[in-house]
């Protein structure tokens, strides 16, 4: 057996598809065999892009009518698989929708899932994924056993996205069957938090604040510094949980993965779950009053000091430069 049929769970965003989708497609096509994308929704607007990145076919459920994708998309995919197109490997992005669809499908197919991966390799019929543990210090390689479809989820930014220049992918309808007792979870309203400046996971400079800022109001120092450096502001989970800033700003295992040119951590201890989200940054500056803070272990420039002293002076110096 060889791995010849790979599916990628694709997600639409802002009229196109997410960068994560393009990353997975790029990796999928390097593994050999044919690549199909699956879309929970209408695919007519994205078939060209998906094709350009290597998908020859798109299974599309059509509009979900507000249904949460987990049960709906998994049922549609299970029906396609029952119908005879059996993928060897299905790659999901490690995010809300990817995880939910993968989880539902794993039960329908009675197959294991492996999540939080950062790499995948194929050797004949076997598929091996790499998962960083302990904050990325240790890499665990796991090989799927038994028969596919193998289900794996990958962390954002695990692969570089590169177009292959293929023509538009053929759209094949994968309608959602009757969900019976598993259906019914429906989105009735969508709330989008306004944000200005570059996107957190695309910015060249990211300035993140943590509990060391002391209080919610002090986050303005982080915002101001991010703005002065034309970057984006991020946060540790501690202050997201505390309600100081919205979840969309969280960097780390449960939040965004960022790999900017410069990452500035202000008052962040450097817990493993935070580090997995920012360790890939090219340059890291950390400001923390505790010389023993783990964040200094990954910092190119570490300042043992008080954020309330260092940040205002830094802002003043930057603003003085005009």
């Amino acid at each position: 057996m060889t791995i010849s049929n790979i599916w990628v769970f694709a997600q639409a965003a802002d009229g196109g598809v997410t960068t994560g989708t393009l990353e997975l497609l790029t990796k999928a096509r390097s593994l050999g065999g044919t690549v199909s994308a699956v879309v929970g929704g209408d695919a007519s607007a994205v078939a060209a892009t998906l094709g350009e990145y290597g998908a020859t076919r798109v299974y599309a459920t059509g509009d979900l009518g507000g249904a949460l994708p987990g049960a709906a998309v998994a049922s549609a995919l299970a029906a396609v698989i029952d119908g005879g197109d059996r993928p060897d490997l299905i790659m999901f992005p490690q995010n809300y929708e990817g995880r939910d669809v993968m989880a539902r499908l794993s039960v329908k197919l009675d197959r294991t899932v492996i999540t939080n991966n950062t790499d995948v390799s194929v050797d004949g019929g076997s598929v091996t994924v790499t998962t960083p543990v302990f904050g990325g210090n240790t890499l665990v390689a796991t090989t799927f056993s038994g028969e596919g479809p193998f289900l794996a989820a990958f962390r954002p930014k695990s692969f570089a996205a590169e177009a292959a220049g293929g023509g538009a992918a053929e759209v094949v309808a994968a309608p959602v069957p009757d969900l019976g007792s598993t259906g019914g979870a429906t989105v009735t309203a969508v709330h989008v938090e306004e944000s200005t400046g570059p996107k957190l996971d695309e910015a060249d400079v990211v300035v993140s604040g943590g509990r060391g800022l002391g209080e919610a109001e002090k986050f303005s120092m982080v915002d101001d510094l991010a703005q002065a450096l034309k970057g984006a502001a991020g946060a540790s989970r501690a202050i997201v949980d505390a309600g100081w800033v919205p979840y969309s700003m969280q960097v780390g295992q449960t939040g965004k993965v960022v790999k900017p040119n410069v990452y500035i951590a202000a008052g962040i201890s450097g817990a493993t779950q935070h580090m997995v989200g920012m360790k890939g940054s090219k340059h890291i500056i950390a400001i923390n009053k505790d010389a023993e803070a783990p964040i200094f272990g990954v910092a190119d420039l570490g300042i043992v000091g008080d954020v309330h002293k260092v940040l205002p002076k830094l802002l003043e110096a930057l603003q003085g430069r005009g």
Partner: peptide
Amino acid sequence: AGQQITSVTQA
């Protein structure tokens, strides 16, 4: 029996 850890390395 769906998975088997095949190696553990230091990053």
